[in-house]
Amino acid sequence: MTKVVLPELGEGIEKATVSYWYFKEGEKVNEKDDLVELTTDKATFNLPSPCSGMLSEIFFREGDEVNIGEVLAIIEESQENRLQR
């Protein structure tokens, strides 16, 4: 199980807004795929998937605000991904 966390985005940035999920819950994702798009100020940015697996749970929907460090989603890693470790 891998947590998708909103990382540091720069000095003074405490939160961002989810603008678009590229995948739905239950869908397979590959490492580095664009997972979610967020906005802050006049910028959009992407969060790539940290691993390959199944997007099992999304905690913040489009339009929701997320604080830096909060968990956006959970990815259940695929078996082959775990074996490669």
Partner: peptide
Amino acid sequence: KKDIHFFL
């Protein structure tokens, strides 16, 4: 510099 607001 990886800082969105700084860039803006």
